[in-house]
Design a protein around this nucleic acid. Structure first.
Lengths: 223, 223
DNA sequence: GCCAACCTGTCACGAACCTGTCATGAGCGA
DNA sequence: TCGCTCATGACAGGTTCGTGACAGGTTGGC
């Protein structure tokens, strides 16, 4: 789960990032609208936490830009003002929720989870490929009904592959799905590693991951 | 088991919350329709206790909004009036049960459990896994018919695990089920603690709790 | 009201395991 | 064959998890 925090007060954003990190959410922090746009242009997020008061522009403008650019990522607005106007504007522009500062960290977490869950609920069904079943809910997979012991990264990678059985996924794409910006120093080789590990765990079955040199990877069932 | 209590009389809601808390239910309290909506937007509840007379709006309106928004959470209405009209309206709108004030706490508990059970399609209220039997009514469990001495938190955790044997439950999911918003900032480590304590009590049996690193926990019977 | 027993959650430290790098070698395409 | 991409075993470092000890709070008995 990947979160973008747009907030200029470093102490606040840091506190949020640390807390969310505890629950396994990968957080990127932007302190201006401009840098937020850079992040958004490059990376897909599960949810955005957006402060209204930002040094360069108003957060609602950023939201408006996102929506008009077709970006439907759930957005939770933060505001220091007790301003009904701002809240209404935000909701009208397509914010999915708002929170008034000062807020309780736990409430923020709960709301973020709710937003992401709402989003994820549609696609939370089990994905199947031949004898392989993957359930996103528990990040667990079974092969001929025998549970497969996947680590988190392996499971994430498998999910990416399963959800895109038609087209081979480039290493770049897999990389983005697997790592947050903060893991910036991870080598591309890591992808190859996890592919290898997944292959090992799938070896006994008819499911395999094929390599398209210079293009990417694709999962398929030869059975 | 997570309960939302919507009731403006603080003494009543507090009494309910404390009582239910003793039975391992995590309770959040809202004193207006508006705050109730905030909670509902954020958190999935197993059941909602909803007073009809609320300061900002009528409880039936909240119920109506919930249902038209597709929220199927079981709702138990409370009313101080001996008004057949209100009751009929409530049931028509999709309330699952009602209770006339003043009511007996034990009756409320029993009805809540009944509602949740109905929801969970649980045929009998006793959940079984191999030699382990758990009865939610008294939060008590037996192992090969020998009673297990579980504390409230331990029992709640066990119930969560037993009701989700298929998929591993993430720590945050367990966390949500175990603690309410009002619980002070409890560390995530607490989950690990209770898992350890449960394991100790289950050690003598074929039932065990397996760890999926970075994913969650799952209970299973190796017997 | 007091004390004892117990429940609850924090802390700290060690163990287990995951993660990603490196290095080496294989495989593919030109 | 050359040059590149990819595969994979080994390993170090880091993270997550397990658990004993402990302090504060609550409960219940007297």
């Amino acid at each position: 789960m990947r979160v973008l925090i747009v907030e200029d007060a470093a102490d606040v954003s840091e506190a949020i990032a640390i807390r969310l990190g505890k629950f396994g959410m990968a957080c990127d922090v932007a302190d201006t609208c401009e840098s937020a746009e850079d992040y958004l242009a490059v990376q897909r997020y599960d949810v955005v936490v957006l402060d209204i008061n930002l040094p360069d522009r108003n957060g609602t403008e950023l939201l408006q830009d996102m929506r008009s650019a077709g970006n439907r990522t759930p957005v939770l607005m933060l505001t220091a003002l007790f301003s009904v106007d701002d809240r209404v504007t935000a909701l009208d522009l397509g914010a999915d929720d708002y929170l008034i500062k000062p807020f309780d960290q736990r409430e923020l977490e709960a709301r973020l989870r709710a937003l992401v869950r709402r989003e994820a609920e549609q696609k939370s069904d089990v994905v199947t490929l031949g004898p392989l079943k993957f359930s996103p809910a528990g990040l667990s997979a079974t092969l001929e009904d025998v549970p497969l012991n996947l680590t988190r990264r392996e499971a994430t990678l498998l999910e990416l592959l399963l959800r895109n059985q038609k087209t081979p996924l480039s290493k770049k794409r897999l990389y983005d799905g697997l790592f947050a910006f903060e893991d910036a120093d991870v080598g591309v080789n890591a992808i190859e590693l996890y592919i290898a590990r997944l292959r090992k765990k799938l070896a006994a079955s008819s499911v395999s991951i094929e390599t398209r040199r210079g293009v990417g990877y694709r999962i398929c069932n030869d059975g």
